[in-house]
Structures are given as C-alpha cells and as structure tokens.
Write a protein that binds this DNA or RNA. Sequence first.
DNA 1: TGTTAGCACTCATCAAGTGAGAGTGCTAAC
DNA 2: GTTAGCACTCTCACTTGATGAGTGCTAACA
Lengths: 343, 343
Amino acid sequence: MQMDERKRKILRAIVLDYIATAEPIGSRTIARKFDLGVSPATIRNEMADLEDLGLIEQPYTSAGRIPSDAGYRYFVDCLMDPQELSEEQKKTIERESTKQIHEIQEVISHTSKLLSELTSLTSIVLGPHKGKSTFGKMHFLPYQPGQVIMVIVKENGVVENHIVDVGENLTVEELQHVAGVFNQKMRGYSPGQVKRSLLHDIYSELSRQRILIDNTMDMLRTILDDHDGDERIYLGGTLNMLNQPEFKDLDKVKTLFKVFEENGSLKKLLHPLHEGLNVTIGGENMLKEFRDCSLISASYKVNGITIGAVGVLGPTRMDYGKVIAIVDCMTRSLTGVLTGRRL
Amino acid sequence: MQMDERKRKILRAIVLDYIATAEPIGSRTIARKFDLGVSPATIRNEMADLEDLGLIEQPYTSAGRIPSDAGYRYFVDCLMDPQELSEEQKKTIERESTKQIHEIQEVISHTSKLLSELTSLTSIVLGPHKGKSTFGKMHFLPYQPGQVIMVIVKENGVVENHIVDVGENLTVEELQHVAGVFNQKMRGYSPGQVKRSLLHDIYSELSRQRILIDNTMDMLRTILDDHDGDERIYLGGTLNMLNQPEFKDLDKVKTLFKVFEENGSLKKLLHPLHEGLNVTIGGENMLKEFRDCSLISASYKVNGITIGAVGVLGPTRMDYGKVIAIVDCMTRSLTGVLTGRRL
DNA sequence: TGTTAGCACTCATCAAGTGAGAGTGCTAAC
DNA sequence: GTTAGCACTCTCACTTGATGAGTGCTAACA
C-alpha cells in the first residue's frame, strides 16, 4: 500500500487538528473541518489504511485517531509547509537578542527565556563550551595578610580568580617568581597531566614557598578539572509544561521535572546532535522520560565554529512549523550576536 | 472557656495524628489510638470546645477534625516536646557540612540540598550578603592585545575580574598609573556616588587613556551596582512538594512553582525575619501562595554577624518538631563552618 | 472499481442513584 | 461530669443508564 495524495491530505488534517485540539479526531470531523470533497465513509477507509501503515493510532476502540510518532515524522518531513515568522516576531527576536550584550551568560540565559516565551514551551540551552581547560597563565595579586589573589587565564581565554593562603608573608618579588615558574612549566597542561617530574621541578625551584605551591596546585586542580563549569544548561519555561494537557497527570510531571533537575542527561540530549536543525520526535528520543515529547534543537556558532546548542522541548503534539521557525531564527540571531565576540 | 489539660492532650493528639496521616481525625479514632482514659463521646464534647476556640476545624460536616493555623500555632508554642536529633543525624549534618569547604557558594548550595533531603521538604536558603559593594582596590593584568584583565577587590572582600578594552596598547606602567589613580580616588565609593568632580579629576589626570577609563567606569557600574549578584536564593527539593498529598492538585503546584521561579518574593519571605529561629504558619505567611504552607527559618552568622538565612518550606501539616530540630542544627553547623572564614 | 449511505456495535464520559462508613450533636441515663 | 445510644449528615466508591462520538462492515450506487 502506498501513500497517495488523498492519504497525505488526511494525515495532514489529522496532525494539524490534533496539534490544535489535543483531542482524537474522527472521520466525520475531518470531513466537516477540512474540505476534502469526500464523505466520512471514504475517509474512514483511508484512515484504516493509514493505521495499517503505522502513521496513526487509536487510543481505544471507537475513539478518533491520533498521529503516531511515525505520523509526526512523516508530517515534519513531507507534509509541513515551511513556516515563516511574521516580521513583527522576527523584529522581537532581533531586538531582544541584542538587548543584553554585556556578558555571554546573560545573552544565553536571555535567549532561553525568550525561546520559552515565544513558544510557550520549555527551552533548553547548552551554554558555550570554551575549548580545552588547560593552564595558560597565572598572576598573583596582594589581598590580605597571608593571602593572595590568584588569577588564572586558561588557554581558552577564560579568566578566573581565587584566594590562596600563602602560609607566611611573601614579598611581591617572591610571588612573581612563583608565578613565573608556573607559567614557564605548566602552559598547555591540565593538572592531571602534570607529570611527577614537572612537579618535582617546581618544588625544587621553589623550596621556601611550599604552602603556597600546595594550595595553588589544589586550586588549579579544582579549577581546571572542573569540566562542568563550562557548558552550563539553561532551562526556561519549565512551568509551561504544566499547561499542556498531556501533563495533567502528576506522575508524568514528577518524572519530567526530575530530569530537569539533574541536568547531566539534558546535556547528553543536546550534545550528540548534528550540525544545523534537528527534530527528534517521541520515542526517537534518547531519554525514556521524554517519550511523549519532541525536541527541536539547533546548534549555534561563533566565528563559524559550533560551540553550543539551543532546544525547545514540548509534547509530541507541538506546532512543529512554528517552533522550527522560531528555533531557526533564534540560532541565526544568536550566532549573529556572538560572532566577532570574544568568549 | 479555657484550655485545660485534657483539651491540650486532645489537641496534641489531633495535630500529631493529622501530621502523620493527612486525614481528618474523629473522636473514636483518638480514643482508640491515644490512651486518654475517656470515651469518644467525652472527646466529642471537648472537640466542640476546641472548635469554638478556633483551634481545630471540620473540612465538612461530619468529617473528622483537622488543626487550624491557630491550632498548629498553639501546638508549636505550647504542646510540642522539643525534639533532639539522633546522634547519627547530627553526625551526618556535621560530616556533610564540612565536606565542601572550598567555595562559600558550594557550602550554601550543599546546605540547601542537605536540608531538603533530611526533611523531604523544600529548602530555601538565602545566600550571604556581603556587606556594601563599594570599590576597594583595582589591578590590571595583561590579557590580549588591546585588552586587559581588570581585577576588582570590593570593600567587602569579594574579588571579581572582567575583560576591558583598552583602545590602544598601553604599557604596564601606564596601566599601573591608571589603576593607581582609581585606587586613590574611589575607595569606599560606589559608581553611583562618584561625584562629577571626582570623575573630572580622574579624566584630567589620565588624558590619554580615555577609552580605558570609559570602559572601566562602565564595568565598575555593572559590577558594583549589581545588588542581585549577592544574596542569591538557593532552592532545594522543590520536587518534594509534589509528594505531599496537599499538592496533588495541579493548580496548586502551578502557583507554588511560579513563586519558586521568580525568587524575588522568596527573598522577601526570608528577609524581614528576626534573629534566631522563626516558625511561620499558614496564613501568617506574607505570600498568599503559601497560605497552605509553613516555613521554619533561621538566620546564620559569620563571626557573630547575621548574614543570611535558611528555611524549610512544607505544608502546614509538617513535622514541626523534627524540622525545627534540623533547621536549628543546620544553622549552628553552618555558622560554625563559616565562622573564622573570609567571605 | 471506487465511493457512499446505512446500520449495528463499541467505548468513554457524565449524571444520577445507592449503600457503606465515618463522624457528629443531642439527649438521657449513670 | 461522663458515657451510651441514636438519629442524622456527609463523603466516597460504586453501579447504572443514557448519550454521543466513532468505527467497521455491507450493500447499493455511479
């Protein structure tokens, strides 16, 4: 059995109506709402075929039909008219995106908020990963008696500072000497890679400042080995999920929000995606908790290099056309805002 | 009508049983479960009195009774036996509190997590406010061509760093000169307080570095005027609320979580509290969304000065004795961990 | 041969009704 | 002052029946 034009029209009608109403749709309703020029009986026959093809299903005997995952997939791939955002919406995105250009974190979190507001769904944004977290350069600055500020510049350009206990008061020259040795020996390494010999070198060159060295190495370990610090997950509009009729069941809400809470799995969800825009429908999803959800995601770039991703999560019954258009526009805008900017 | 010993016993029984079962409790059940030595009928008479006193109420005619807000209040103030944590629990708190002593943020967020786990309720922790965010000292460090790292030490000891565009390449000496002027003129001021005259001084002393000055002042404004940066709210175990029978209604969950999302109101909730431990029951609460909730909160100190607060939020029907003991122990432990430490 | 009308059948949903159970207030006896 | 007894109330869970939407099948139709 093959899909013909009429089957396609009927499937399209079912998907569109179900997206709009969240109610199973019957042959009669299709005939009434969509002008296909055939009677409900004919539509019934076609629907039986569509069910055999696995594109639609019945929640229970003698209810209307709803699209299956495969049905949504067919719809997204073949039936959907590509949707354009209105000029007004585009302008909103442009305006909002360029509003907070101060810190990159603000840009990202603002993006997340905007996405969830525009779609009335949940947005998941994977913050920029910033290249390898290896040692670049170090400075010491005076702080309090017995303590100094250690400023670390990582090789990817990220700057962090921490307070380090010195042990006893050291002179500016001594501090500069210590920093100099670190800078000379450690560039490009992570503490895990620092070989015994190297550490030995540092110790032997700097005998008196043992406490400082130990504390500094401790600090470096926590700073540089902390891979979670980069790539933060930003969630927006999680509450929107509660408005979806598919989540009027408390247990579903619980399992869903549990996933939101531990964002490790969310990272996995967004990570392995291909370049450009992806649509993941229902069971195609890696997380079983998201079996009833679809994810529209896309990667964003800085200076041509993919460094993060944004996604919109909603029930499988979502307005794919609209959401895809919004996500697409958003990543373009984000890429535009970020390009030419130092992270 | 006065409270006598028997009335107290009955009220206590009602509160305890309702806390445990979440079901209205009748005279017969009280007589059976609690050994008061009187018959259900007598208890009924006493319950009628307690209802007249406003301490208990009936959800509907001929259901059992449940405590009113006033009933809980009486229970907490007069009837509750002060509860001690088991040695094991105390040890857990001690051990967990001292585990993450690295960053103060980690200590706080860990506290929040621990609190919600121990109570199976929602924890709200108000992070430390760090005194006045006024200018303390500034350093410049080399970064990229045309950019420098500006390190700001605020008067409260907080250190932050930001990248500043220099305009053109300046020498280390020039940078030090700029920093020196800032350090001399601005200590103790917030940018809002910087008078025109002072700014004029800085400009006139540093003619060539106009771009650097402008960018630096911009940065300072955002860094020092950002009051929200301090006093972050940490939430833990929000999902625990979903396990409470009083929140099996989705609409309640929605309004509750809406409050969690915008943490401005949460700050208000914790802020105006007195020193030491507070119990806020049901309608006593400032937020109408929390009318069905009680909040056990306490402030914590560093070196004798109150700098933040922790709270546990649950349904009015919560185990006050246990939660109070936990919150109390927790703030003590937190105070202990933080005391002697620089923020 | 594809399309349509008719019809019997299925199933969820809703409203009304019913009985059990828990609890109360009142009264009268102890 | 306390208690037993009793009529009464109200919720809850369950049943029942009507309704309506929708289906699949069959036979007639173009």
